[in-house]
C-alpha cells in the first residue's frame, strides 16, 4: 500500500462506520429511481442518446438472463450435420466429387464473363452541368460568360500546366484537386489509401472524363504497386480500376471499391 492511500489507510485503522453497508445497500436500491428521474427530465438530443444507451443495456441484460436461464444440455448431440461428412467407417475412402469441381469452374467462368463489366454501383444519379460548372463572369464589365469553374472534386495529372486565361475555358481550382483515394479491397475487406493515376470514365459524360471530374460512380485508376500483385506472365500489376462509392465533394475524401 503506497504512502498516499489515505482512504485505505484510514479504513484499515478505524474500519467502516457502523451503518456503512446499510447505506450502501440503500444507495443501490435508490439507483433505478434516480435513473428514471433523469430519463424523465432529459429532452432533445440528449434524450435520444440516453434512450439508445438504455436500449442497448436492456438488450445485453436480456441476453444475459436468457443465457443464464438456459438449461445445461449436452451440446454435442445438437450439432448440425455438415454436408459431405461421412461416418467414421467410411473415412478412408477418397470419394472426390469431380462433378462438383466441374460445376464450380463453370460457374466461376460464367461469373467472370459477366463480371467483367459489372460494377458495384451500376446506376448513378445524373448530375446537371449547372451543378458542376459555375459560370465565371469575365471581361471589363463582367458581362462575358464563357468561362466555367468546376465545383466538383477533380483529378489533375502531375505534369499539368494551366493554359493562359484567354484560352482557359474550364478552371479546376487547386482546393478541389485530389491525389489520393481510400480504396477498399472487396475480398480482403481492407481499405488502403492509394494514389490516383487517372480518371478512366465518368458515367455522366465524356467531358467530365476528360476534365478528370470525380463524382459518385466514376471509374478511376489507382496505383496498387504496394499490393505486389503479379500477372500470369509475371509482370507486376501497378494500375487497377476502382469505382468511387461516395460523393467526394460532400465528404471531403474519395472512397472507392477496387474492381477485381
Amino acid at each position: 500500500m503506497p504512502q498516499g492511500d489515505y482512504i485505505e489507510e484510514h479504513i484499515k485503522e478505524h474500519g467502516h462506520r457502523l451503518d456503512h453497508f446499510e447505506r450502501l445497500r440503500k444507495k443501490e436500491a435508490r439507483e433505478p429511481h434516480k435513473k428514471s428521474q433523469i430519463v424523465k427530465r432529459t429532452r432533445g438530443m440528449k434524450a435520444k442518446l440516453l434512450n439508445k444507451q438504455n436500449f442497448v443495456d436492456k438488450v445485453q441484460q436480456r441476453k444475459k438472463i436468457a443465457a443464464l436461464s438456459q438449461k445445461k444440455v449436452d451440446r454435442r448431440m445438437e450439432q448440425p450435420l455438415v454436408e459431405g461428412s461421412v461416418p467414421p467407417y467410411l473415412l478412408d475412402r477418397q470419394a472426390a466429387s469431380s462433378a462438383k469441381v466441374l460445376s464450380n469452374t463453370i460457374k466461376e467462368k460464367r461469373k467472370e464473363k459477366a463480371g467483367k463489366w459489372e460494377v458495384p454501383l451500376p446506376k448513378v444519379r445524373p448530375v446537371a452541368d449547372e451543378e458542376t460548372f459555375k459560370v465565371i463572369y469575365t471581361g471589363k464589365r463582367k458581362k462575358k460568360q464563357w468561362k466555367r469553374m468546376v465545383t466538383k472534386v477533380t483529378f489533375v495529372g502531375d505534369g499539368f500546366t494551366r493554359k493562359p486565361p484567354k484560352y482557359e475555358r474550364f478552371i479546376r481550382p487547386m482546393g478541389l484537386r485530389f491525389k489520393k483515394a481510400h480504396v477498399t479491397h472487396p475480398e480482403l475487406k481492407a481499405t488502403f489509401c492509394l494514389d490516383i493515376i487517372g480518371v478512366k470514365k465518368n458515367p455522366q459524360s465524356s467531358l467530365y472524363s476528360s476534365l478528370g471530374v470525380i463524382t459518385k460512380g466514376t471509374i478511376i485508376e489507382v496505383n496498387v504497386s504496394e499490393f505486389g500483385l503479379v500477372t500470369n506472365t509475371g509482370k507486376v500489376v501497378w494500375g487497377k480500376y476502382a469505382q468511387v462509392t461516395n460523393n467526394p465533394e460532400n465528404d471531403g475524401c474519395i472512397n472507392a471499391v477496387l474492381l477485381v
Partner: peptide
C-alpha cells in the same frame, strides 16, 4: 485546415453541412 479549404467551394447549405459533418 483541409476541410476549411474545401468549405470555401461549398455552393449549397447541404454541401457545407455535409462537409462539416464529415470533418
Amino acid at each position: 485546415k483541409e476541410y476549411l479549404r474545401l468549405l470555401k467551394y461549398g455552393d449549397s447549405l447541404y454541401r457545407c453541412k455535409m462537409l462539416k459533418r464529415a470533418a
